[in-house]
Design a protein around this nucleic acid. Structure first.
Lengths: 252, 252
DNA sequence: GCAAGTTCTTGACGCAAATCAAGGACGATA
DNA sequence: TATCGTCCTTGATTTGCGTCAAGAACTTGC
């Protein structure tokens, strides 16, 4: 059985003139994640008015590329994306995975160029938030300004978590941590915390965690043998959440 | 011969009533690094008015601790600090080193608690910037708002650099990269790019780079044998900048 | 200036994960 | 439904760095 992260484009029959990806912020089921603001409803309308929605990205299409002129940040509406940098010797470093309700592109603010590339891991819809409009709106809406400071700060603390993981933890611990992270992000979106489909390949996982594909694969096999989780290709079922926590051995 | 990063407290004789650490932003020699803003001089005065200066921290004193209530971000005026997190099994992860002109504490914004601790590596003076004042001022000074968005974004991209370093590079490459980073940050502050004193211990370096002390020490010995640099305890002299670039093998 | 503690260096050894290699499963296309 | 290409798994071997150990150099306090 498959848990779908995405729900874009499924509702055409019911709402023939309004695609799902065009839903306004006020009625978007993700708004508690994306904008957990004490916003007045006309504040939401103002924000809504600057947001641009376009048709979904197909799998492996780029949302932006490293070096592109920075114009907007993006909120994921459905599907999943990865962000990655290319090192000068041509290798790739995956810097993050982004699920519905999460914001990406903030690394482009510092010098008006995207510092990483973003690519759809599966069909994905995003909301584009033009940054100059966001800045102007932030000036007149203190809660929005604060919200964006907080979002960026959270990105910093999450990167620091990853730094710690890479610097201090074994292959087992790294993979277990990622599974827990995906699990908790799922439950935040009211999806199953114990059963989900990984949108990314083993290569991407390894790349993100500083491991080779082979090692990731071996860790999954080991976890399966220990009956911590059931792995069927990209389908994951967590059988023993405590065991997984144990294996991760980090404050998630 | 010793290159001093710090200059706090040396000028008492010349200016008996105004300690060096009390210099205003307008006349601070670091303001081009700390606030590279197109600020009008009365804008600078406004910013200046919210900034609090206190007497220098002694070596190994804390500026703030993980879990402390977040109130302010800090600009380093002199000396050097490290930021670090303690993992739940009691180990330490150094997440950054901060030199004069650099800003720290931004990881506390996301949930009003400092996500890491900050400790002086040597005598250090800092400027405290209360965050609520900064937010208010940002609302009425668009260039300041932008500046802080950019600062936070830079922190994100720098963390991503470190993630890549930890995930993809050898011990030699990591240490070489750190030396280049310190070198370029020095030259930005108009100090020697080729000769400096490391304010942090080998343990801290190893911790930051995900290596053991022994490995760091061995890398330094190797670099010395290859005549890339001369190491005399904490004194570093870069003899062959190209060789060092080569060894680092990363886009600095 | 000596003693005690800390920090740094160097060597010997072991191990976790990388590399190399091969085969199997899956998904797309015709 | 057969074929190609990509993705995943598993095994054998190698290796870079961690661990353990010991001693040297530096720092601090008496």
């Amino acid at each position: 059985m498959t848990i779908r992260l995405a729900d874009a484009g499924d509702n055409n029959v019911l709402k023939p003139c309004l695609h799902d990806y065009q839903v306004s912020c006020g009625s978007c089921r993700l708004n508690s994640i994306c904008l957990p603001l004490a916003l007045e409803s006309d504040d939401i309308e103002q924000l809504d008015s600057i947001i641009q929605r376009s048709k979904p990205l197909q799998k492996s299409q780029h949302l932006y590329r490293e070096g592109d002129h920075f114009k907007s940040v993006f909120a994921v509406r459905s599907g999943a994306l990865k962000a990655y940098k290319t090192t000068d010797d041509g290798r790739e470093q995956v810097t993050g995975f982004y699920f519905p309700g999460e914001i990406l592109g903030m690394d482009g603010i510092s010098n008006n160029l995207h510092a990483s590339s973003a690519k759809a891991l599966e069909t994905a819809a995003v909301c584009e938030i033009p940054f100059t409009s966001l800045e102007k709106l932030s000036s007149i809406m203190p809660s929005l300004q604060r919200h964006f400071f907080q979002l960026m700060s959270r990105e910093i603390t999450e990167d620091q978590q990853l730094i710690t993981l890479l610097s201090k933890n074994s292959a087992d611990e790294r993979v277990a941590s990622l599974m827990l992270s995906i699990s908790s992000r799922n439950s935040r979106r009211k999806l199953s915390a114990t059963q989900f489909r990984l949108p990314m390949s083993r290569v991407d996982i390894g790349n993100y965690l500083g491991l080779t594909v082979e090692t990731v694969s071996r860790v999954f096999s080991r976890m399966q043998k220990l009956e911590i989780l059931r792995v069927d290709n990209k389908e994951i079922k967590i059988l023993d959440p405590n065991g997984l926590q144990n294996m991760a051995n980090v404050a998630g």
